[in-house]
Design a protein around this nucleic acid. Structure first.
Lengths: 260, 260
DNA sequence: ATATATTTGTTCGTATGTATC
DNA sequence: GGATACATACGAACAAATATA
């Protein structure tokens, strides 16, 4: 609360230790949050333009008159929100603004739900085989650690990114699915080469959360915006789980329409 | 990297300090991440069920053999991911899984919550009669300026707020609906007194955004969290529009389930 | 209703590891 | 290799919120 334990100064008095950059101790707002808000404002006003390098942590901490830990907590918060980016040995930099697309009227995406997400998902971003973690294993009814094929992809409409997502497939059933998918850009066609001509949606779940820094980047979203998180579980006609997917949808740009 | 500054132990040797809970120093994986993954797995396997209280930070730090800061970094990561929730003075708890909320033509909040074994409650916040603006008029197929009854309400499950929202009803059809709703806390029951025994969902529209300050307040949400914005249009069985509503749903606590 | 203990949250201090230039 | 700068980790103290006697 006070600068030194045991010493209080009355309201309105000027404290002996001056507050060089406007951090107010004992104001009810934590120091790291005050610092984060201040830096965020400096970025917003253009005082710290995109690509600019921030002073080194020790210097910044000194200017704000706080410990380096306190400053780092503020930076960590801004990193989470995608406003800055730090690299060990290089420095901390203001990120390029991800906003590249005008916010227009929302795309109405009844298809996603109606068609059961069957349409090709769009741009292939990468794939790898990995052991199933607890969550994926449960969804696909596999034992934890069973190899699963993980595919990252994104979906665009008129060149504007709408969603990014990850899908997991049982690797035993879907070997080389990613190769065909990457080549054709169509999941349906890729599955067809595996002899899976048809499948059906088992469940669709929807929730939402603030976009991660990574998602802000890929979706060109201003930091702090919300994404809808759509989880889907598809099964083959015999009931065997085929695909578990989780997509982050830019909520700014998409409105899901559910018809009864 | 090593336990005590200056002391290194060769690969394969058993370090003097035993690693009680499996954290491996100098393995390339940071301690906090190892701890986070371990706790996450304990939650996933059910060893730490929803609602369970974690040991206090000092104890947890001791069991893992790390400093409290290191442990807190792990907990912070899990908090971000929504797996746990900490309150000063109370403790840290494994989060309850989100309320599964099926969306369909016959969605009834109270029935869904009750089916989940929880206690539903609709809180009446206020009401007034106002002329329909362009949006509401279009949704309810009324002329602009037609009197509509506007009801503000929130919904809770086991005392935890799940959503806040506004609904508009044609006033001619729903006179005094607000009084009965305020008294009973059940819209279904209030409508029944008007002779409307049943109604059906005509359309549901979904998007998401960060919660406003007001919503954070009403929903007891930390600032910056996401809410799902659900617009719904209900109609009587004869097709007459009955209710247009717009709700902000705490995305942390609710997962909408779209049945195939 | 009040005081006290418990538990998480914030802050400072210090040291060392590790990536980059 | 050396200097720089971020990353991780341990230690100590106190504040603030909550629970409890």
């Amino acid at each position: 609360m006070s600068e030194t334990p045991g010493s209080l100064h009355a309201e309105g008095h000027i404290p002996v230790t001056d507050e060089p950059a406007g951090v107010e101790r004992g104001s009810g707002v934590t120091l790291w949050r005050q610092i984060a808000e201040r830096i965020e404002q400096e970025i917003a006003t253009g005082a710290r333009p995109p690509g600019a390098r921030l002073p080194v942590e020790t210097d910044l901490a000194a200017t704000f008159g706080v410990n380096r830990h306190t400053l780092r907590r503020a930076l960590s918060y801004l990193t989470e929100r995608g406003l800055i980016e730090a690299t060990a040995g290089r420095g901390t930099f203001v990120k390029e603004p991800p906003l590249r697309y005008p916010i227009g009227p929302r795309t109405r995406f009844s298809e996603i739900v109606a068609a059961g997400g069957r349409e090709p998902f769009g741009r292939f971003l990468g794939s790898r085989v990995e052991p199933a973690d607890a969550g994926v294993a449960r969804e696909l009814s596999l034992a934890v650690g069973t190899p699963v094929l993980r595919i990252e992809s994104s979906h665009e409409a008129d060149g504007v990114p709408m969603s990014v997502g990850t899908s997991w497939f049982p690797h035993a059933r879907c070997r080389d699915l990613d190769l065909v998918y990457a080549a054709t850009g169509s999941l349906t066609r890729a599955l067809a080469t595996l002899g899976i001509a048809d499948y059906r949606r088992r469940e669709t779940r929807l929730t939402a959360r603030p976009a991660t820094a990574q998602e802000s980047q890929t979706l060109s979203l201003p930091p702090g915006r919300a994404v809808m998180v759509l989880e889907r579980l598809d099964a083959e006609l015999n009931g065997a789980p085929l695909q578990f997917g989780r997509s982050a949808i830019a909520a700014d740009r998409v409105q899901l329409i559910l018809k009864p």
